[in-house]
Structures are given as structure tokens and as C-alpha cells.
């Protein structure tokens, strides 16, 4: 899939959001789209997915099957999870049997089984995001476009995203993903595109440097100090979330949304909790990073 000299603006006299973007991604490749808020990351992803049409230029060689996970899943719909996903599968060209089978597979895989009969507006943000992931995977996509896919996902679910990406890549598909939380350190082999001032550039890979994610647990009272020390040592803190003692995988706990803001963690827990801190650290390996837990 390639963008050939693509320009885009939303209104006739509006400012150019993207200017002369010329980038491409081959089958089996993943690219991370980075940039500040409002830089045009989502616009670029929507152009790639086919949601937006370039004002100038063109998008070529887009695969027939595209999976798109929008930044905000449109949950304001009067359907339950199962009905919606089956309908999306049928819309993607699957037969009723194939759609049912695909929905069963992905609801189980993404931990949505107990939400199958829950109506979409009643889902939490993270669960709705999983429904968004599921609908994109019902038919194996040749291009998977993920706009902030980690948004709202809990600690245990965040690992699902790299798994899905690896599977799409292994099947010969391409993946585009944006992220402002730093979660893309979990994708050490991906190319990096930056969007700034309407221009898209590829960041040259730094030779021999890869990243790994290390999750540590510290007493709640020491969170602020730990985060400060980690940052002072040059590490990136990806997130802080409350975890009960012994909850090894973080399942069922809330995650503080903002990077390195322990004050955002819920404080109503009756027992003194431990706090899990996820951070990234450099690993000077030539072969790429390991995501460690």
C-alpha cells in the first residue's frame, strides 16, 4: 500500500493537514505513526484505511480486506456484542456460518465471551475497544490500521495487540499503528513514521538499539519516587496502575491512564495495594528487543 504525493485538507479553504505525503508499506511490514496531538496521525491512518479520500494524490495497492480500529469505537448503537460482530462479519463478506465461527473465535480470544449479550452502550471503554479489535480481525486483513489501539485496555489486554499484529504480519499483511502512550516499544521491528507540520517522514532506525518493557511492582507510597528515579535514569514510564498483592498479571485492575501520573490511580481500595509500574528501558542488542514481563 502506497500513498503517492497525498495532500489532504478537510475544507476547501482549510489548512492542509497533510502535504505531499509519499510513503508506502510492504506486505509483512508494520509501521508506527507518531506525532503530537492534532499532527494528523489519525488523518494519515484514515487515508490508508480508505475512510478519507485524498484532496490531491492517490493511495494505491490498498489490499482488498482492510481492518480498521478507530480511536474511539462507536459504541452508541442498539445492538449487543454478538449481533453487532456477526453483522460486521456478514458485511465483510463472510457467510452466516463463517461469521458465527469467526465471532466465536475472536470473542473468546479477546475475553469478550461473557459480554456477548451485553449491549454496546453498556460496555466499558476498554471492552468496547476490544469489540473494535474483534470486528477488524473477523476476516483476516491484508492491511490492519490501528488508531491508538491500547487506549482503555487493561494491563493484561495490552499484550493482545502485539500478538494480533504479529499474526497479521505472519500472514503477509501490513500493519499501521498510532500510539501516544509509548506502548509501541512492544513492536521493536516496526518502521517509524512521524507526522509533523503536515509532513510525514520516516525515522531512520537507530542501529543496535531496541527497547524492552519491564513491569515492576512497588509499594503504593513509593510510586512517585520510583517514577521520578526511573525518568531521571533516562527510562520512559509507560503507565502506572493499581494492582492487588498477588495479582500477577494485573487482570481486573484499573489502569491509570496517563503516563507517570500516580495520582490518577484509584484511591478507594480498602487494602493497601501494590502499584505496578510499566517502563521501557534500552537494551543494546543487535537482534531487536524483547518484551519482558
Amino acid at each position: 500500500m502506497r500513498l503517492e504525493n497525498v495532500w489532504l485538507r478537510y475544507h476547501r479553504r482549510g489548512p492542509w493537514v497533510l502535504r505531499d505525503a509519499a510513503i508506502g508499506i510492504a506486505p509483512g511490514e508494520a509501521a508506527i505513526v507518531q506525532g503530537r496531538n492534532g499532527a494528523g496521525k489519525s488523518t494519515l491512518l484514515q487515508l490508508a484505511a480508505g475512510v478519507l479520500r485524498p484532496t490531491r494524490g492517490r493511495v494505491v495497492e490498498r489490499p482488498t480486506v482492510v481492518g480498521w480500529v478507530p480511536e474511539r469505537f462507536p459504541a452508541d448503537q442498539p445492538f449487543d456484542v454478538h449481533y453487532y460482530l456477526v453483522a460486521m462479519g456478514r458485511m465483510a463478506g463472510l457467510t452466516s456460518v463463517e461469521a458465527g465461527r469467526a465471532v466465536d473465535h475472536w470473542t473468546e480470544r479477546l475475553g469478550l465471551t461473557r459480554f456477548r449479550r451485553v449491549r454496546l452502550p453498556e460496555l466499558s471503554k476498554g471492552t468496547a475497544q476490544k469489540v473494535g479489535l474483534a470486528q477488524a480481525m473477523l476476516r483476516p486483513p491484508g492491511l490492519l490500521v490501528l488508531d491508538e489501539p491500547w487506549e482503555g485496555l487493561d494491563a493484561s489486554s495490552r499484550e493482545l495487540v502485539p500478538e494480533l499484529i504479529d499474526e497479521v504480519l505472519a500472514d503477509g499483511g501490513s500493519v499501521l499503528v498510532s500510539d501516544h502512550r509509548g506502548e509501541t516499544v512492544r513492536l521493536p521491528g516496526a518502521r517509524r513514521w512521524t507526522v509533523a507540520a503536515g509532513e510525514v517522514d520516516e525515522v531512520a532506525p537507530t542501529e543496535g538499539q531496541a527497547y524492552a518493557v519491564v513491569e515492576i511492582a512497588v509499594p503504593a507510597a513509593q510510586v512517585a519516587g520510583t517514577v521520578t528515579r526511573l525518568r531521571a535514569d533516562g527510562h520512559r514510564v509507560l503507565g502506572v496502575h493499581l494492582d492487588r498483592l498477588g495479582a500477577t498479571d494485573g487482570a481486573g485492575v484499573e489502569t491509570a491512564a496517563a503516563e507517570g501520573r500516580p495520582g490518577d490511580a484509584p484511591v478507594s481500595d480498602p487494602e493497601p495495594p501494590d502499584v505496578a509500574v510499566s517502563g521501557s528501558t534500552t537494551a543494546n542488542t543487535a537482534s531487536g528487543g524483547q518484551v519482558a514481563r
Binding site: Q46, A49, G50, V51, V66, G67, W68, P70, R72, F73, P74, D76, Q77, M88, M91, A92, Q135
Partner: peptide, 16 residues
């Protein structure tokens, strides 16, 4: 009735 986001999803899945 359909949210704008769902309309865009339908465009990606079924075609514009």
C-alpha cells in the same frame, strides 16, 4: 441513527 464512526467503519468493511 448510525454514529459517524460506524458509518466510516462500514465504508472500510463493505466499501464506500
Amino acid at each position: 441513527v448510525e454514529p459517524d464512526g460506524q458509518r466510516r467503519l462500514a465504508q472500510v468493511v463493505a466499501g464506500v
